[in-house]
């Protein structure tokens, strides 16, 4: 191949890659952008533009049911993610530090299975448990359900961190006179903290997002935001749903951006 030909092929490669990226990001983002645009539509239709308006956002803040479902979702997400983080971190620590114990295989299988289990099955199974235990369904049962699924994700996120931790750090702490308990709290836990934090956020996100398991385990008065949106969507596509969706996307985009900036700052600080 002559030099110019090789050069042009390299250009072709670069443009092919850019084209693929453009198409890919288009596919990922166009639906979301359309959804946000039409949340500002004047008309009830979500596909025909009839002028700019924020009336649907106004309607949203008068919708008591919607507001109470947001509150339920937040309580559920915070409580279940906290519980999931405690249980999941313990499980990750146990799995990472104890290579062999009775029932390790079963334990590991129980941790990994919910990650890929269809939600319909998990939800159904948990509901049957609550019925058998004769527990009234409501926020508490939903918290238990979400914590059970969330802890598996926390474990999977945190365990590698414990595994990769340099053992000599633990030994150094013991060598300097720290008891095992004090070592755990002063060395092991702080070093795993970033992973534990990610695990908590992941568990919270999953809880905020879940429709199926929440529907199975909910009771009267514990309708969450996804459940509320779902029932509205079933009644028809409305700009009001677009508006709440756009708000949620905005909140998440803000959180992601803030997280990225924060990480960059601590990163820059460390170097």
């Amino acid at each position: 191949m002559s030099a110019p030909a090789r050069l042009s092929s390299r250009f072709a490669h670069r443009y092919a890659h850019r084209l693929v990226l453009l198409a890919g990001f288009g596919f990922l983002y166009v639906p979301i952008i359309l959804l946000i645009i039409f949340s500002f539509n004047e008309s009830r239709l979500v596909t025909v533009w009839a002028g700019f308006s924020t009336r649907w956002y106004g309607a949203l803040f008068k919708n008591e049911q919607m507001l109470s479902s947001v509150w339920n979702s937040l309580v559920l997400a915070l409580a279940s993610a906290s519980l999931a983080t405690i249980l999941g971190t313990l499980a990750a620590y146990g799995l990472a530090r104890t290579p062999r114990f009775k029932g390790r295989m079963i334990f590991a299988a129980m941790i990994y299975a919910p990650l890929v289990m269809p939600e319909v099955i998990s939800g159904l199974a948990l509901l049957l448990l609550f019925v058998a235990l004769d527990l009234d369904r409501g926020l508490p049962t939903m918290i238990m359900a979400h914590a059970s699924i969330g802890m598996c994700f926390v474990t999977v996120v945190v365990q590698p961190r414990f595994m990769a931790m340099d053992r000599s750090l633990i030994e150094a702490a013991m060598d300097l006179g720290a008891t095992p308990l004090s070592t755990f709290f002063s060395i092991t836990l702080p070093l795993a903290f970033p992973a534990i934090q990610s695990g908590f956020l992941l568990a919270m996100m999953l809880s905020l997002d879940d429709l199926v398991i929440a529907s199975f385990t909910s009771g009267p008065g514990s309708t969450t935001l996804p459940m509320r949106i779902y029932s509205q969507v079933r009644l028809g596509v409305t700009p009001e749903v677009n508006a709440i969706s756009a708000l949620l996307i905005g909140v998440i985009a803000f959180a992601l951006l803030a997280g990225a900036l924060l990480r960059r700052r601590t990163h820059a600080h460390a170097h």
Partner: peptide, 9 residues
Amino acid sequence: TSFLIRVYA
């Protein structure tokens, strides 16, 4: 972002 919202879109 919410799974439900992405499907809804």
